[in-house]
Nucleic acid binder design. Structure first.
Lengths: 134, 134
DNA sequence: TTATGTGCAAACCGTTTGCGAATCA
DNA sequence: TGATTCGCAAACGGTTTGCACATAA
Protein backbone atom coordinates (compact mmCIF):
# COMPACT_ATOMS: atom_id res chain seq x y z
CA UNK A 1 0.00 0.00 0.00
CA UNK A 2 1.71 3.16 -1.23
CA UNK A 3 1.65 6.33 0.84
CA UNK A 4 2.74 9.73 -0.42
CA UNK A 5 4.68 10.80 2.64
CA UNK A 6 5.93 14.02 1.06
CA UNK A 7 2.37 15.13 0.33
CA UNK A 8 1.27 14.23 3.85
CA UNK A 9 4.09 16.33 5.31
CA UNK A 10 3.36 19.30 3.07
CA UNK A 11 -0.32 19.12 3.96
CA UNK A 12 0.70 19.11 7.62
CA UNK A 13 2.52 22.39 7.06
CA UNK A 14 6.00 20.92 7.33
CA UNK A 15 8.97 22.06 5.29
CA UNK A 16 10.32 19.50 2.87
CA UNK A 17 14.00 19.71 3.65
CA UNK A 18 16.68 17.49 2.14
CA UNK A 19 17.22 15.40 5.29
CA UNK A 20 13.47 14.93 5.71
CA UNK A 21 13.06 13.83 2.10
CA UNK A 22 15.86 11.34 2.61
CA UNK A 23 14.23 9.80 5.69
CA UNK A 24 10.83 9.66 4.00
CA UNK A 25 12.30 7.94 0.95
CA UNK A 26 14.14 5.40 3.09
CA UNK A 27 10.95 4.57 4.97
CA UNK A 28 8.89 4.26 1.81
CA UNK A 29 11.48 1.92 0.33
CA UNK A 30 11.98 -0.23 3.43
CA UNK A 31 10.29 -3.59 3.46
CA UNK A 32 11.78 -4.50 6.84
CA UNK A 33 11.75 -2.94 10.32
CA UNK A 34 14.84 -0.70 10.48
CA UNK A 35 16.27 0.86 13.63
CA UNK A 36 17.12 4.56 13.77
CA UNK A 37 20.75 3.62 13.23
CA UNK A 38 19.80 1.66 10.12
CA UNK A 39 17.54 4.44 8.80
CA UNK A 40 20.42 6.85 9.35
CA UNK A 41 22.81 4.64 7.38
CA UNK A 42 20.40 4.28 4.46
CA UNK A 43 19.54 8.00 4.48
CA UNK A 44 23.22 8.90 4.32
CA UNK A 45 23.23 7.67 0.72
CA UNK A 46 20.63 10.31 -0.15
CA UNK A 47 21.90 13.15 2.04
CA UNK A 48 25.46 12.62 3.20
CA UNK A 49 25.30 15.40 5.78
CA UNK A 50 22.25 14.15 7.66
CA UNK A 51 22.65 13.62 11.41
CA UNK A 52 21.31 11.03 13.85
CA UNK A 53 19.54 13.82 15.73
CA UNK A 54 17.49 14.68 12.67
CA UNK A 55 16.59 11.06 12.07
CA UNK A 56 15.46 10.76 15.69
CA UNK A 57 13.43 13.97 15.39
CA UNK A 58 11.85 12.99 12.08
CA UNK A 59 10.99 9.50 13.22
CA UNK A 60 9.48 10.81 16.47
CA UNK A 61 7.39 13.29 14.49
CA UNK A 62 6.11 10.66 12.07
CA UNK A 63 5.30 8.37 14.97
CA UNK A 64 3.40 11.20 16.62
CA UNK A 65 1.47 11.68 13.35
CA UNK A 66 0.61 7.98 13.42
CA UNK A 67 2.46 7.40 10.16
CA UNK A 68 5.08 5.19 11.77
CA UNK A 69 4.73 2.27 14.16
CA UNK A 70 7.43 1.84 16.79
CA UNK A 71 8.40 -1.70 17.74
CA UNK A 72 10.27 -3.04 20.72
CA UNK A 73 11.14 -6.62 19.85
CA UNK A 74 12.88 -7.30 23.17
CA UNK A 75 15.93 -5.42 21.98
CA UNK A 76 17.75 -2.44 23.46
CA UNK A 77 16.56 -0.16 20.67
CA UNK A 78 13.39 0.56 18.70
CA UNK A 79 12.51 -0.43 15.16
CA UNK A 80 10.10 1.40 12.88
CA UNK A 81 7.81 0.59 10.00
CA UNK A 82 5.13 2.43 8.04
CA UNK A 83 1.67 2.17 9.51
CA UNK A 84 0.04 1.16 6.24
CA UNK A 85 -1.48 -2.29 6.37
CA UNK A 86 -2.09 -3.96 9.68
CA UNK A 87 -0.26 -7.13 10.56
CA UNK A 88 1.35 -8.84 13.53
CA UNK A 89 4.85 -10.24 13.86
CA UNK A 90 6.46 -13.59 14.47
CA UNK A 91 10.10 -13.41 15.55
CA UNK A 92 12.35 -16.40 14.89
CA UNK A 93 14.33 -16.53 18.12
CA UNK A 94 17.16 -18.44 16.48
CA UNK A 95 17.78 -16.24 13.45
CA UNK A 96 16.15 -12.99 14.54
CA UNK A 97 14.12 -13.01 11.35
CA UNK A 98 10.85 -11.11 11.61
CA UNK A 99 7.90 -12.58 9.72
CA UNK A 100 4.70 -10.63 9.23
CA UNK A 101 1.31 -12.28 9.32
CA UNK A 102 -2.35 -11.40 9.49
CA UNK A 103 -5.30 -13.30 10.89
CA UNK A 104 -8.83 -12.01 10.63
CA UNK A 105 -9.86 -14.54 13.24
CA UNK A 106 -7.29 -13.09 15.63
CA UNK A 107 -8.36 -9.52 14.92
CA UNK A 108 -11.97 -10.36 15.66
CA UNK A 109 -11.06 -12.18 18.84
CA UNK A 110 -8.95 -9.30 20.20
CA UNK A 111 -11.81 -6.92 19.55
CA UNK A 112 -14.27 -9.26 21.26
CA UNK A 113 -12.06 -9.70 24.34
CA UNK A 114 -11.75 -5.94 24.81
CA UNK A 115 -15.49 -5.48 24.36
CA UNK A 116 -16.28 -8.25 26.84
CA UNK A 117 -14.08 -6.45 29.39
CA UNK A 118 -15.98 -3.21 28.85
CA UNK A 119 -13.34 -1.50 26.70
CA UNK A 120 -13.08 -0.14 23.18
CA UNK A 121 -9.89 -1.41 21.56
CA UNK A 122 -7.62 1.44 20.44
CA UNK A 123 -4.41 -0.37 19.67
CA UNK A 124 -2.72 -3.64 20.37
CA UNK A 125 0.49 -5.50 20.00
CA UNK A 126 0.99 -9.17 19.37
CA UNK A 127 4.32 -10.82 18.92
CA UNK A 128 4.96 -14.52 18.62
CA UNK A 129 8.45 -15.72 19.52
CA UNK A 130 9.07 -19.07 17.92
CA UNK A 131 11.51 -21.60 16.50
CA UNK A 132 11.37 -23.12 13.02
CA UNK A 133 9.84 -26.59 13.22
CA UNK A 134 12.40 -29.29 12.48
CA UNK B 1 -0.48 -19.54 42.68
CA UNK B 2 2.09 -19.45 45.48
CA UNK B 3 5.77 -19.99 44.72
CA UNK B 4 8.43 -20.54 47.34
CA UNK B 5 11.06 -18.28 45.88
CA UNK B 6 13.46 -18.71 48.79
CA UNK B 7 13.45 -22.48 48.33
CA UNK B 8 13.95 -22.12 44.59
CA UNK B 9 16.97 -19.89 45.16
CA UNK B 10 18.50 -22.21 47.75
CA UNK B 11 18.01 -25.17 45.43
CA UNK B 12 19.75 -23.16 42.72
CA UNK B 13 22.78 -22.82 45.00
CA UNK B 14 22.25 -19.13 45.71
CA UNK B 15 22.96 -17.47 49.03
CA UNK B 16 19.93 -16.11 50.81
CA UNK B 17 21.15 -12.68 51.74
CA UNK B 18 19.06 -10.00 53.42
CA UNK B 19 18.64 -7.87 50.27
CA UNK B 20 17.69 -10.92 48.23
CA UNK B 21 15.11 -11.99 50.76
CA UNK B 22 13.67 -8.48 50.68
CA UNK B 23 13.31 -8.49 46.89
CA UNK B 24 11.82 -11.98 46.88
CA UNK B 25 9.28 -11.00 49.52
CA UNK B 26 8.31 -7.86 47.63
CA UNK B 27 7.76 -9.86 44.44
CA UNK B 28 5.75 -12.55 46.20
CA UNK B 29 3.54 -9.88 47.77
CA UNK B 30 3.07 -7.77 44.63
CA UNK B 31 -0.22 -8.14 42.82
CA UNK B 32 0.72 -5.49 40.25
CA UNK B 33 3.58 -5.00 37.78
CA UNK B 34 6.22 -2.97 39.64
CA UNK B 35 9.22 -1.27 38.05
CA UNK B 36 12.71 -1.72 39.48
CA UNK B 37 12.35 1.67 41.12
CA UNK B 38 9.09 0.55 42.76
CA UNK B 39 10.55 -2.81 43.85
CA UNK B 40 13.46 -0.90 45.35
CA UNK B 41 11.13 1.39 47.28
CA UNK B 42 9.11 -1.51 48.66
CA UNK B 43 12.22 -3.52 49.51
CA UNK B 44 13.65 -0.60 51.43
CA UNK B 45 11.01 -1.23 54.11
CA UNK B 46 12.47 -4.71 54.65
CA UNK B 47 16.16 -3.87 54.24
CA UNK B 48 16.87 -0.17 54.53
CA UNK B 49 20.40 -0.47 53.16
CA UNK B 50 19.52 -2.24 49.91
CA UNK B 51 20.75 -0.58 46.71
CA UNK B 52 19.25 -0.18 43.24
CA UNK B 53 22.18 -2.13 41.80
CA UNK B 54 21.23 -5.17 43.85
CA UNK B 55 17.59 -4.91 42.83
CA UNK B 56 18.68 -4.75 39.18
CA UNK B 57 20.98 -7.73 39.65
CA UNK B 58 18.40 -9.81 41.49
CA UNK B 59 15.65 -9.04 39.03
CA UNK B 60 17.91 -9.87 36.06
CA UNK B 61 18.84 -13.16 37.70
CA UNK B 62 15.24 -14.13 38.39
CA UNK B 63 14.31 -13.21 34.84
CA UNK B 64 17.15 -15.36 33.57
CA UNK B 65 15.80 -18.23 35.71
CA UNK B 66 12.39 -17.72 34.10
CA UNK B 67 10.85 -16.85 37.44
CA UNK B 68 10.10 -13.28 36.45
CA UNK B 69 8.49 -11.87 33.31
CA UNK B 70 9.73 -8.53 32.05
CA UNK B 71 7.21 -6.17 30.49
CA UNK B 72 7.66 -3.14 28.29
CA UNK B 73 4.30 -1.43 28.24
CA UNK B 74 5.42 1.38 25.92
CA UNK B 75 7.16 3.10 28.80
CA UNK B 76 10.77 4.17 29.25
CA UNK B 77 11.38 1.47 31.85
CA UNK B 78 10.55 -2.20 32.45
CA UNK B 79 8.01 -3.72 34.78
CA UNK B 80 8.18 -7.17 36.34
CA UNK B 81 5.79 -9.82 37.58
CA UNK B 82 6.08 -13.41 38.74
CA UNK B 83 5.81 -15.98 35.98
CA UNK B 84 3.23 -18.07 37.77
CA UNK B 85 -0.05 -18.23 35.89
CA UNK B 86 -0.22 -17.20 32.25
CA UNK B 87 -2.30 -14.22 31.25
CA UNK B 88 -2.24 -11.30 28.85
CA UNK B 89 -2.68 -7.60 29.58
CA UNK B 90 -5.09 -4.85 28.67
CA UNK B 91 -3.78 -1.36 29.34
CA UNK B 92 -6.28 1.45 29.90
CA UNK B 93 -4.65 4.25 27.92
CA UNK B 94 -6.51 6.91 29.90
CA UNK B 95 -5.72 5.78 33.44
CA UNK B 96 -2.69 3.57 32.84
CA UNK B 97 -4.45 0.79 34.72
CA UNK B 98 -3.27 -2.68 33.74
CA UNK B 99 -5.94 -5.40 33.64
CA UNK B 100 -5.02 -9.05 33.35
CA UNK B 101 -7.08 -11.49 31.32
CA UNK B 102 -6.90 -14.98 29.92
CA UNK B 103 -8.55 -16.53 26.89
CA UNK B 104 -8.18 -20.20 26.04
CA UNK B 105 -9.51 -19.43 22.58
CA UNK B 106 -6.73 -16.89 22.08
CA UNK B 107 -4.07 -19.27 23.36
CA UNK B 108 -5.17 -21.97 20.94
CA UNK B 109 -5.29 -19.53 18.04
CA UNK B 110 -1.76 -18.21 18.67
CA UNK B 111 -0.45 -21.76 18.76
CA UNK B 112 -2.30 -22.60 15.54
CA UNK B 113 -0.98 -19.54 13.72
CA UNK B 114 2.62 -20.37 14.61
CA UNK B 115 2.13 -23.99 13.56
CA UNK B 116 0.56 -22.96 10.25
CA UNK B 117 3.63 -20.82 9.59
CA UNK B 118 5.92 -23.75 10.25
CA UNK B 119 7.05 -22.68 13.71
CA UNK B 120 6.85 -24.00 17.25
CA UNK B 121 5.64 -21.27 19.57
CA UNK B 122 8.13 -20.58 22.38
CA UNK B 123 6.81 -17.35 23.83
CA UNK B 124 4.51 -14.54 22.92
CA UNK B 125 3.31 -11.17 24.01
CA UNK B 126 -0.12 -9.70 23.59
CA UNK B 127 -1.15 -6.32 24.87
CA UNK B 128 -4.43 -4.60 24.22
CA UNK B 129 -4.43 -0.81 24.53
CA UNK B 130 -8.00 0.38 25.09
CA UNK B 131 -10.37 2.97 26.52
CA UNK B 132 -13.20 2.27 28.95
CA UNK B 133 -16.50 2.15 27.06
CA UNK B 134 -18.71 5.11 27.91
C1' DT C 1 12.69 37.68 5.25
C1' DT C 2 11.61 34.71 8.91
C1' DA C 3 9.70 30.78 10.91
C1' DT C 4 11.19 26.24 10.76
C1' DG C 5 14.61 22.82 10.67
C1' DT C 6 19.51 21.26 11.22
C1' DG C 7 24.12 19.58 13.02
C1' DC C 8 26.84 19.39 16.91
C1' DA C 9 27.79 18.08 21.32
C1' DA C 10 26.29 17.80 25.81
C1' DA C 11 22.72 16.10 28.75
C1' DC C 12 19.54 12.61 29.96
C1' DC C 13 18.07 8.41 32.26
C1' DG C 14 17.29 3.63 32.82
C1' DT C 15 20.49 0.11 33.28
C1' DT C 16 25.03 -2.28 33.80
C1' DT C 17 29.48 -3.03 35.81
C1' DG C 18 34.33 -2.84 38.21
C1' DC C 19 35.94 -2.78 42.60
C1' DG C 20 37.00 -3.27 47.31
C1' DA C 21 34.30 -4.30 51.43
C1' DA C 22 30.71 -7.18 53.65
C1' DT C 23 28.30 -11.49 54.33
C1' DC C 24 26.36 -15.98 54.14
C1' DA C 25 27.35 -20.98 54.42
C1' DT D 1 37.54 -19.20 55.78
C1' DG D 2 36.37 -18.47 51.09
C1' DA D 3 33.26 -17.98 47.51
C1' DT D 4 29.45 -15.17 46.76
C1' DT D 5 27.08 -10.92 47.08
C1' DC D 6 26.87 -6.15 48.19
C1' DG D 7 26.93 -0.85 47.89
C1' DC D 8 29.06 2.73 45.63
C1' DA D 9 29.94 5.37 41.87
C1' DA D 10 31.38 5.50 37.35
C1' DA D 11 30.37 3.86 32.76
C1' DC D 12 27.20 2.61 29.20
C1' DG D 13 24.08 3.33 25.18
C1' DG D 14 20.01 4.63 23.07
C1' DT D 15 17.60 8.84 22.95
C1' DT D 16 16.67 13.82 23.71
C1' DT D 17 17.74 18.65 23.72
C1' DG D 18 19.87 23.66 23.82
C1' DC D 19 21.96 26.47 20.82
C1' DA D 20 23.82 28.96 16.99
C1' DC D 21 23.66 28.38 12.12
C1' DA D 22 21.27 27.00 7.74
C1' DT D 23 17.37 26.73 4.78
C1' DA D 24 12.72 26.26 2.58
C1' DA D 25 8.89 28.97 1.40
Amino acid sequence: MAMNLEKICIDAGLKLTLPRKAVLKVLEDSKDHPSVEEIYKRATNLDSSISMATVYRTVAMLHEMDILIRHDFNESFSRYELNDDHHDHLIDIDSGEIVEFHSDELEALKEKIAQDMGFDLVDHRLELYAKKRK
